[in-house]
Design a protein around this nucleic acid. Structure first.
Lengths: 225, 225
DNA sequence: CCAAAAGTGTTCCGTCTACACCCATGG
DNA sequence: CCATGGGTGTAGACGGAACACTTTTGG
């Protein structure tokens, strides 16, 4: 593969990935953060991320960083890059370009501890995060914007839930991402009209009337891009 | 700025930008291509692009490549990155990651010749391009998809035209990007209802009834992101 | 007067919004 | 029986799609 040399003007830069990983927890949209163990920004919270290995695809690198910097073991239900941050000076160590990714984790995958060279990991409210290292606040803001857009196009909300779920649960996912309340009747009408959901048995929640359980209809795949 | 060294696991890669630059020409949507003068893919057509210089922002690099690889002198009316292509093996020279950009050039800026180390430059039909070097066909396809999306959100179609323009001209821009015909009455109604356009004098085209000239209303700015 | 392109309205239909009450269960 | 949350329908507003003829100019 190395049949030709890189031309002399080829700037060598550090290539990194950062991952904004979201999940629902306690009825709220949460983002996964790690506490840095090294300079720069030691002890500051940051998005999980790190350098891409030689020969490794960007997508693989994002998956690896998610697994090694946190104790998240489940595969993300959704992973896509959404923007590349490359301003000179965004990292004091030199020219580092980061391809930012958006990940969605299913409901179960919420217990995390740190891993690798981080001091810890945890979930934080996505719309009110703590102070973040580097330009990660800007990355998170943009990730939330992309998440909102994807909610309309693809059926990304389903990826936050287990295989079976209730409509009120699904509505809470939409509300958490859009950060505003939705009308119950209109929400149900719209979702059921799409024909992507099929009912199954019942379920009792702690209190109140039990909710109908739904499942994604087979043959319903997200419309990508 | 170089207060800290890059950690040893920091993969060094070549960082490039590629630009899919569009303009209207002859009532058709065209994309700007250059003919490569060097290996690999010598004499093949490709999107203009090249390596980012040290200390240079991605945006600046895209502008520079556009200016030096082609004779386009006007500033693009719109320039944004839309995807980063980083698969190992996409470039036989080694690991090269390219941040792909979408550019829109105004109506006048259509005379191009090659520059730098290219053999030439020219405009080609965007929906039926010639064979392209590297993975540039995939980049172009994705650029067209982004252009379609932007047409709805922002008011990107105006950037293809001069400051004053007629509604039929604007309609042709929309039709060229969407690659399908639009109804004249519905198009006018929709556009004028948005209140972003104001009328001015008249103009005679070669044949037929002269069309009203319009101008973008002041205080109308594209909704970004 | 003819060719060519600009300009103009109405109807229909589907989708979104607002809005209030009854139902099933557990304690 | 009461507290809690699940489930249901309708009317009005709005926006997009379909559709054909008249107007203005140059040659």
């Amino acid at each position: 593969m190395e049949t030709l040399a890189l031309p002399p003007q080829a700037t060598q830069v550090g290539l990194a990935v950062d991952v904004a990983a979201f999940a629902m927890h306690g009825g709220e949209l949460q983002v996964l953060l790690v506490q840095r163990g090294e300079l720069p920004h030691a002890r500051a919270w940051a998005l999980p991320g790190g350098f891409v290995h030689p020969g490794e695809d960007l997508h693989e690198a994002a998956l690896r960083e998610l697994r090694t910097e946190t104790s998240v073991t489940l595969e993300p239900r959704h992973l896509e890059q959404f923007y590349t941050f490359g301003a000179p000076g965004r990292d004091p160590r030199g020219r580092i370009v980061s391809v930012a990714h958006l990940a969605v984790l299913a409901h179960g995958a919420v217990d995390v501890t740190g891993g690798g060279h981080t001091l810890g990991a945890g979930w934080f409210p996505a719309h009110r995060p703590p102070a973040l290292a580097f330009d990660h606040a800007a990355i998170l803001t943009r990730a939330l914007g992309r998440l909102r857009v994807r909610l309309e196009y693809a059926h990304l909300a389903l990826e936050f839930l287990s295989d079976t779920f209730t409509l009120p649960e699904l509505q809470r996912v939409h509300e958490a991402i859009l950060d505003r309340p939705l009308d119950k009747r209109n929400f149900r009408k719209r979702l059921l009209a799409q024909g992507l959901l099929v009912a199954s048995g019942e379920r009792r929640s702690g209190v109140g009337r039990p909710a109908q359980l739904y499942r994604r209809a087979k043959g319903a795949r997200a419309a990508a891009l």
